[in-house]
Design a protein around this nucleic acid. Structure first.
Lengths: 210, 210
DNA sequence: TGAAAAAACAGGGAAAACACTGAAAGAATA
DNA sequence: TATTCTTTCAGTGTTTTCCCTGTTTTTTCA
């Protein structure tokens, strides 16, 4: 019996192409393709459309991979999710795994590795490459006191523009001194030494997309 | 007779998958896949390996799509290049077209559009979507006095780190005041008002990849 | 080789960013 | 209600960035 697979990716070409690869694998068949999480969930209204495994991109419009995976884990725990993303960003990988993904395939995956990963996810329940395992280990060490508050995240996003802190304080409807407080606290938490460092951090960790 | 195609992309999965799609098209056959421009040029040493068309990604390690396309135009003018990139960035598209690409496919291309594009490139010599045409038009207006000197580009790259200008002056082996001069001149040329603005500009225009 | 242009550098002042300590107001908890 | 914790904000001083106006040195080229 074949396992059914759905590919969710906003890049049409990529999802079609990956669908084509998966279709070639003996143990798998592709049910359909989706452009984002929302479209996937709509499909699930009909039970026939619920697959064994979802190959999920992360950056997608409307409903992204992380949010979608969280919903799936809650509402459809039998559906296994394998993340498949073009860029390897530690925080994103972590978030995706926390959300419930059974593994994470990086961009330079080869066809036979994809097949191997699909098989392992279905039969062992998970698939982790060395890279991903290493990231998991590394994360346990650096994952202290980097919990950002709502306001701090809002501040960081504004700090990633060419606004001055005075302008930011007006945009956030608070005192200039409060903004300085946010700055000092995120500088400490994220261990950056100036605003440029903060911008680079935000980009690398997907708090801000330039 | 079939046109021969080579796919150049560092994302293994993507190049394999696209190769699979192209293989399905009647008029085309895939010669081989490459991971970057350097690998492609190595292959060209043997005349048998020179295809009619190259489907080229832009961001690649070692030798990127723009550089590779420039070399191809000079040394192998009969090989047509069609750019195929995941992210649509105006400046990148422009650079690629200037380098000699016959067209530019955006991420949400569908299978039949890909085929259409391949056919048009081979038979008409080019393929431009509306999006790309619009970008070409827009670019003619903003393209005044943004000629950057070597030193200024070097400065910009360093300004995209968390170094202070004093540290940058040491790295560039020149006076602090000279660095201030570079800063003032690029601020004027690029119409940015502070260092954050400069970093964002650099990222958007691929002077710096975070 | 001499004039013009470009690149490197300098001074100084205003503005912004950084770094610290600490106080007041509000929310949470027991 | 008292206590703790968090959030917001203030004071103060230092460093860095920004933005002028210039001078000296090097390059260019007619």
């Amino acid at each position: 019996m074949n396992y059914s697979v759905v590919v969710v990716d906003d890049h049409f070409l990529l999802s079609q192409a990956i669908g084509g690869l998966v279709q070639d694998f003996k143990k798998f068949k592709v049910l359909y393709l989706c452009k984002n999480g929302s479209e996937l969930l709509d499909k699930f209204d009909d039970k026939k459309n619920i697959p064994d495994l979802v190959l999920m991109d992360i950056k997608m419009p409307i409903l992204n991979g992380i949010e979608t995976t969280e919903i799936l884990r809650k509402d459809f725990p039998n559906v296994k999710v394998l993340a498949l993303s073009i860029e390897e960003d530690e925080y994103t990988i972590l978030k995706m795994l926390r959300a419930g993904a059974r593994g994470y395939l990086l961009k330079d995956t080869k066809k036979n590795i994809l097949e191997e990963a699909l098989i392992q996810v279905m039969e062992k329940g998970h698939y982790y490459t060395n890279t991903v395992s290493q990231i998991l280990v590394d994360s346990l060490e650096n994952e202290i006191d980097t919990e950002l508050k709502e306001k701090e995240i809002e501040f960081i996003k504004l700090a990633c523009t060419d606004m001055s802190y005075k302008e930011i304080s007006e945009a956030m409807c608070c005192s200039y001194k409060t903004v300085e407080g946010y700055r000092d606290s995120v500088h400490k938490k994220l261990k950056v030494k100036n605003r440029i460092g903060l911008v680079l951090f935000a980009i690398h960790h997907n708090l801000f997309t330039p």
